[in-house]
């Protein structure tokens, strides 16, 4: 259970108050107008911005004092998820160890993750040789080897075409079910998420609240989302 109580984040003149609970092993969308604070919300959960007050709980455990890398979280960004000077294999390996030396003991894990995202044949390639969708798959493969229970996706597929985006969302759904992940995904197009997730968090008017049922929200949008949807 991801549980956030009265978390307040301040950035200059902007502030966001966050209040919601998320059941484990579910996929939840985060929607809201541009600039409402969707990325700020992910930053607060993953530890990149420190909160003014309030607490983030994962189960019984408070995450507040933990550095981003020590939280039970993997975050996939909009872009720059891969180091361009490292091969696909090395990029995935970074999820297991940051040591410089090659460590054969991780071989199986890495190959299995690459297999799961259907990229096993690409392990010697470099990011510049991959398409946008393939880069996204590699970022997911690294998320898999890290074995962190919470997966945060910050519009990772926004640069892809509609068909490919759908395909990636389905991939997210299948690997998260298989690996028992709890997923939060920021999206600009809630309709696309029908069939992928049931619940949404709404970020609008300086508040992040939820979860609400996605279908209901789409049929009867609240006032704060009227214009946006």
């Amino acid at each position: 259970m991801l549980c956030i109580n009265n978390l307040i984040v301040k950035l200059n003149s902007f502030h966001l108050s966050i209040n919601f609970e998320i059941r484990p092993e579910t996929i939840t969308a985060i929607i809201g107008p541009s600039g409402a604070g969707k990325s700020t919300l992910l930053d607060a959960i993953s530890g990149f911005s420190s909160a003014e007050s309030g607490t983030v709980f994962w189960g019984e455990k408070s995450l507040d004092s933990l550095a981003p890398s020590l939280r039970p979280i993997t975050i996939v960004f909009q872009d720059n998820n891969l180091f361009p000077h490292l091969s696909v294999y090395q990029n995935v390996a970074l999820g297991l160890t940051t040591k410089l030396r090659y460590q054969p003991k991780f071989n199986d894990q890495i190959n299995k993750a690459l297999f799961n995202v259907d990229m096993l044949n690409y392990s010697e390639k470099y990011p510049s040789q991959l398409s946008g969708g393939q880069k996204g798959r590699i970022a997911l493969a690294r998320a898999l080897v890290r074995k962190k229970p919470l997966l945060l996706l910050d519009e990772p597929f926004s640069a892809l075409g509609p068909a490919l985006r759908k395909e990636m969302l389905n991939l997210v759904k299948s690997i998260s079910t298989e690996n028992k992940l709890t997923v939060l995904i920021v999206s600009h197009d809630p309709k696309e998420l029908i069939g992928v997730c049931e619940n949404v968090i709404i970020v609008a008017e300086n508040e992040a609240t939820g979860p609400y049922n996605l279908q209901n929200i789409l049929m009867k949008p609240p006032k704060s989302l009227n214009e946006y949807l």
Binding site: S46, P68, I75, N80, L94
Partner: peptide
Amino acid sequence: YGKLSDSIGLNGIH
């Protein structure tokens, strides 16, 4: 890449 490195714990000399 700062955030990415922070999130996977790529720090210091590495």
